Deep mutational scan, measured.
Amino acid sequence: MSGNGNAAATAEENSPKMRVIRVGTRKSQLARIQTDSVVATLKASYPGLQFEIIAMSTTGDKILDTALSKIGEKSLFTKELEHALEKNEVDLVVHSLKDLPTVLPPGFTIGAICKRENPHDAVVFHPKFVGKTLETLPEKSVVGTSSLRRAAQLQRKFPHLEFRSIRGNLNTRLRKLDEQQEFSAIILATAGLQRMGWHNRVGQILHPEECMYAVGQGALGVEVRAKDQDILDLVGVLHDPETLLRCIAERAFLRHLEGGCSVPVAVHTAMKDGQLYLTGGVWSLDGSDSIQETMQATIHVPAQHEDGPEDDPQLVGITARNIPRGPQLAAQNLGISLANLLLSKGAKNILDVARQLNDAH
């Protein structure tokens, strides 16, 4: 009898209710805020589980004197976190989706994509230029951005401005803007500013005609071990179906173009009346040469937790077992079709030249 009692006690200790789920994140304040929001949602869904947040620095956090596009290494903000995932030191990792490459290392998958916040870019102005827009900034004003995508589009749109690289986390960039006289304004992701509670610093939100956004911008991705079915089931509740389908289309477009950090590629997606609209573009580094096109596809946005595919093969690095396969494939095909259209119009040449120029500098 006593033996059975011990077995029952052991089973209770090993039951999922007692389990601590370890969540990996970057150390920056924004990353911690984003991770806290994901953990809060998981806690609400699984009140019996405990969650421990483990923060670590990544290569991208450490190399702050070089433009991201020049470092010449993929997975700048993800490699150390993936290493911890691989060694079973954490069970899942919360990322900004735009930091996750469209091809993940073997053994990993994006197990959830959370509801997207505003994906557009924002302009934050130096205190002396508050009330201005990019259009009304004085001639030769210097605007800071760490992104080739932003610089290429904005140089084309605002030729009277000069664009220079600015690195560091959000706090560091804002301090550089406010305390030094080098920059009249800087460009940042609206979602990051909003998550930090800095709505009052948003001086201008850039519309798609001015600057399309990065693939996955404004959404959070939760990376897990691809074979860890328990954790895949656990994080599945975080999937937002519309965000998922938009981001599958965007990531398929980028992957098929073979774009990345070192080339200016941008997108804009919208879901309306059962249609998914995808606009994508590529630019030369100075913005003088560009190709942009829009395509659409009829896609039914499923309700969360309709029964999805059981075999769960990944699409552009994403596993969404609780979302039907048909809409996911339709979104992926839309991204591939748009990429093929741009490639047929000469996108590869623009991107190759951009890559060579970026590598040469």
Rank of each mutant, 00 (worst) to 15 (best):
I110R: 01
E223D: 05
T294H: 15
G260W: 04
G259E: 10
N200L: 05
G236T: 09
Q153E: 05
V202N: 03
T145L: 08
P106S: 13
L104N: 03
D178S: 10
N200F: 15
A270S: 07
L154G: 10
T190W: 14
T279W: 04
L329E: 01
S57M: 01
A331V: 04
S141T: 09
I186R: 03
E179G: 07
L30E: 01
Q204S: 15
K74S: 06
V20L: 08
F163A: 12
I187R: 03
Q34C: 06
P159E: 08
A55Q: 10
G197I: 00
P138A: 13
G221N: 00
N118T: 15
Q328M: 15
G274Y: 01
C261A: 01
V124S: 07
S344V: 07
C114G: 07
I318Q: 02
K62V: 12
V94P: 06
P101K: 00
Q332T: 13
T78W: 04
L68A: 09
D230I: 15
V20W: 08
P309Y: 02
F129M: 15
D289C: 04
R173V: 02
V124M: 12
E258M: 03
I71L: 12
I110V: 10
G192R: 04
E293N: 08
T319I: 09
V224R: 03
T59V: 07
S337P: 02
A339D: 06
L220C: 09
L338R: 03
A252Y: 02
L170Q: 14
D359L: 13
Q314I: 06
K128N: 15
T269Y: 01
T102H: 14
D65R: 13
H95R: 02
L81P: 06
Q29K: 12
S147H: 00
I350S: 04
M56I: 14
G216E: 00
L104E: 05
N349I: 06
Q275V: 13
I248V: 07
G72K: 03
H126N: 11
P105N: 06
V282M: 08
K140G: 11
V23Y: 05
P324S: 11
E258W: 04
H95N: 13
P241D: 07
V103I: 08
G346Q: 01
V142A: 12
R173S: 02
A55D: 11
Q181R: 14
K140R: 10
A249F: 01
Q194G: 05
A249G: 02
I291V: 07
V263R: 05
K62C: 06
V90L: 12
P101A: 13
E258F: 06
P309W: 05
T25L: 00
T319F: 11
A84E: 07
P327R: 02
L49H: 11
G281E: 15
G346R: 11
R195T: 02
E310P: 03
P208E: 01
G60P: 02
E162W: 04
S288D: 14
G197Q: 03
A249P: 04
A84I: 05
D273A: 02
V265L: 10
Q314G: 01
Q314C: 12
L206W: 04
R255P: 04
G131V: 12
I299F: 14
K27M: 11
A252C: 00
L285W: 07
R201E: 00
V222N: 00
T172K: 08
L49K: 08
S344T: 13
D311Y: 07
P101L: 07
S69H: 12
C114W: 09
T279G: 09
I187W: 03
K115H: 08
F77M: 01
G192F: 00
N200S: 09
N200K: 14
M56L: 14
F163R: 09
T294Q: 03
K176T: 11
N322H: 09
S290N: 10
I63M: 13
L148C: 09
P106H: 13
T25V: 05
T294E: 00
G111H: 00
S262N: 15
Q194C: 04
I186T: 14
L315F: 15
H199D: 15
R149K: 03
P127Q: 14
R150V: 05
S288M: 15
T41D: 10
L188Q: 07
S37T: 14
L334V: 15
L329C: 03
R175E: 06
G236S: 12
I291P: 09
R149L: 03
I33K: 01
L232M: 12
F253R: 01
L76V: 13
I248F: 11
A55Y: 11
F77T: 02
T172D: 03
E210I: 15
E117W: 10
Q50M: 14
I113V: 02
K345G: 05
L234Q: 08
D240N: 15
R325S: 09
V143C: 14
R22I: 14
E209I: 01
K227L: 14
F77H: 03
L100V: 08
A40Y: 14
D311Q: 11
G281H: 05
H256I: 04
A339G: 15
G203A: 14
V267G: 05
Y213S: 04
K140A: 11
F158S: 09
G259H: 00
L245Y: 15
Q332G: 07
V215I: 04
Q50W: 00
G168Q: 02
L245D: 00
R167D: 05
G192T: 04
G236L: 04
A152L: 13
R167Q: 09
K27E: 10
A219S: 08
L278Y: 01
N88P: 07
N349Y: 06
P208A: 07
E73I: 07
L342V: 15
A266C: 02
Q181N: 06
G259N: 00
D311F: 03
V38A: 09
S141W: 06
H268R: 15
V103Y: 00
L154T: 07
V38G: 02
D178N: 08
P208L: 10
L357R: 14
E310F: 01
H256G: 15
L30H: 00
K157C: 11
L188V: 02
K27T: 09
T109E: 04
L343Y: 01
A84G: 08
H95Y: 04
A122H: 04
R32P: 00
H199R: 11
R251K: 12
K345M: 14
L206T: 05
E139W: 14
T109D: 00
T58F: 03
D286R: 12
T109Y: 04
V38W: 02
Q217A: 06
I350L: 06
A84H: 08
G218H: 01
G197E: 05
V143G: 04
R32Q: 14
G281K: 02
T136Q: 10
V123K: 01
A67T: 13
G24K: 00
S37K: 13
K87V: 07
P313W: 02
M212Q: 03
D352A: 13
A151W: 11
L343T: 09
